[in-house]
């Protein structure tokens, strides 16, 4: 019961932070709101019982991605135009949420459904399949190298 209440509080704070991304006009404040959304999402990881993943996500998303976005994008220049249709955002998000959660409501997530989501292929072991580690590392590495080359070309054109 306590965990459910904690999750509700974290969810409300996370929703406020996420909606703030679309409410703020300048992207600097939107970037800060995104960092707070990452923070509350990491707290949600703690609430569902995964503190280690929460710490890892906190380090990667806030320590890495948010800092990079705020320094690289948000502080570089400000743009002040109304970028989001807030009413349409609210309506569309509710519609998508209902469409996604409708098949879930009414079920009890018992073992029958457990088999549906955790077939033998999944529980058989993804950890031995280490290629995904290499794929993730290779993607970040190549993107970083490619970004350096692109930045160099952009700088040379000026």
């Amino acid at each position: 019961m306590l965990e459910t209440a904690l999750l509700g509080i974290v969810a409300i704070l996370d929703f406020i932070a996420i909606f703030s991304i679309f409410v703020f006009k300048d992207i600097f404040h939107s970037g800060i709101a995104l960092a707070f959304a990452f923070l509350f999402n990491s707290i949600a990881f703690v609430v569902v019982g995964q503190p280690l993943l929460a710490i890892i996500q906190l380090f990667i998303l806030i320590g890495g991605i948010s800092t990079y976005l705020i320094l690289g994008v948000a502080s570089y220049g400000l743009s002040n135009f109304r970028h989001s249709n807030r009413l349409l955002l609210a309506i569309l998000s509710v519609v998508i949420f209902i469409a996604m959660s409708y098949p879930l409501i009414g079920t009890t997530l018992v073992s029958a459904q457990q088999n549906y989501f955790t077939g033998a292929a999944i529980s058989g072991g993804i950890v031995p399949y280490v290629a995904i580690y290499y794929l993730a590392a290779f993607m970040v590495f190549t993107t970083s190298i490619g970004s350096l080359l692109l930045l160099k070309r952009i700088g040379a054109k000026k």
């Binding site: 955002l89 569309l92 998508i96 959660s101």
Partner: peptide, 14 residues
């Protein structure tokens, strides 16, 4: 699901 919905709607409406 709710977070995903807000994100997907944000892509569509921004």
């Amino acid at each position: 699901f709710a977070i995903f919905s807000i994100g997907a709607a944000g892509i569509a409406t921004s």
